[in-house]
Simulated scan of single mutants.
Amino acid sequence: MNRFFHFLRDNALALFFLLAFLASLVGQAFAGAADYNERQIAGGGESISFIAYVTSSEYAVDVAENWQSEYLQFLLYILVTVWLVQRGSPESKPPGQEGRESDKEQGVGGFADEHSPWFARSRGLAHVLYANSLGLVMGVIFALSWLGQSVAGMAAYNRERLSQLSDPVDWGSYLLAPEFWNRTLQNWQSEMLAVASMVALSIYLRQRGSPESKPVGASHGATGVEG
């Protein structure tokens, strides 16, 4: 029992957001099904079952377009913070420390200790992949989500076109369609604004006890300092 409670304590942050994600996903499914059926009835169509909705392209494209924008946000933030800094933000490295840092600073190769992952002590392709694994995985998830959005979006777009007696389009044509980029960019702009707000507001505002904030007593100019 103690081991179980220790597991919950040690993984509480990830478990909280995982449960919040699942609750949101289920809530979106029910709300989306109700909204879809309302629009179907208002347009003279027939309502569909909940199972039919959650397996439809309409639900898939709504989910995928949010996933791809979130992972794009993380991918860009992981990569640009290697080289770009913001003085005063806990989300940034201090000015003057831009770049990939030395082996000593990163604790790799001969500077790795007995607690370091094996990949940190190795050389060659395995080390290169591990040293960039976070960005690579985020990039792969973004690419797959973006691909899923485009495929599901094309199916939903063509269903609507067929209902209007218009010819369906192929995948390449859909990628150039305003509908696809409207869906995509409306998510991207919100993510970029959220990141910019977090970087800038964390210079002057505080949240006591949060590692995403500087200590309450830290100066506005303190950079890379977490509470």
Rank of each mutant, 00 (worst) to 15 (best):
F4K: 04
Y204I: 12
E91R: 14
Y71Q: 06
S166E: 09
S69R: 11
T81S: 06
L18I: 00
E105T: 03
Q106V: 01
G32Q: 07
A52L: 08
F17H: 03
L8P: 05
G227Y: 04
A14V: 05
Q86R: 14
S57I: 07
W146I: 13
A33P: 02
S150W: 15
A14R: 00
G110H: 02
I51A: 00
A126S: 06
S56P: 02
G88N: 07
A33F: 04
N187G: 15
V26P: 03
L176Q: 11
E46L: 02
V216I: 13
T184A: 14
V225I: 07
L19E: 01
L8R: 06
T55C: 09
S173N: 12
E105G: 03
V199R: 01
E58N: 11
E226C: 12
F16W: 07
T184G: 14
F111P: 02
F180L: 08
S57W: 08
L25H: 10
L176K: 12
E38W: 10
G172N: 09
G227R: 00
A34K: 09
I48E: 05
W188K: 15
F119T: 01
E46I: 01
L144T: 15
V61P: 15
A33H: 05
D170G: 13
S166P: 01
L201W: 14
Y71R: 07
A222W: 02
L165M: 09
S102M: 02
G88C: 06
A60S: 12
S213R: 06
W83A: 06
G148W: 15
P215E: 10
R87W: 08
S210A: 11
S219F: 13
V225N: 01
V85G: 08
I48P: 00
N132W: 08
A31L: 08
T223A: 08
Q97Y: 08
S190D: 15
A131H: 02
A60L: 10
E212R: 12
A64W: 11
G209P: 15
W146A: 15
I51S: 06
E58G: 06
A218F: 00
R206E: 04
A131W: 05
L79M: 11
S166Q: 06
E160A: 08
V169M: 02
E160K: 04
P94R: 13
M1V: 15
G217P: 09
F74A: 10
L136A: 12
G224D: 03
L205V: 14
R9D: 12
V140S: 12
V85Q: 07
M138Q: 14
K214L: 03
I41E: 07
A29I: 02
W83H: 08
I48H: 04
A200D: 13
L136F: 13
V140D: 11
Q97D: 08
E114S: 03
V140F: 12
S89D: 00
V195I: 14
A112E: 03
A34F: 09
L176A: 14
E65G: 15
S49R: 01
S47H: 05
Q186A: 10
G209E: 14
I48F: 00
V195N: 11
E70D: 10
L176I: 09
S219P: 10
Q164G: 03
V63S: 10
A155Q: 13
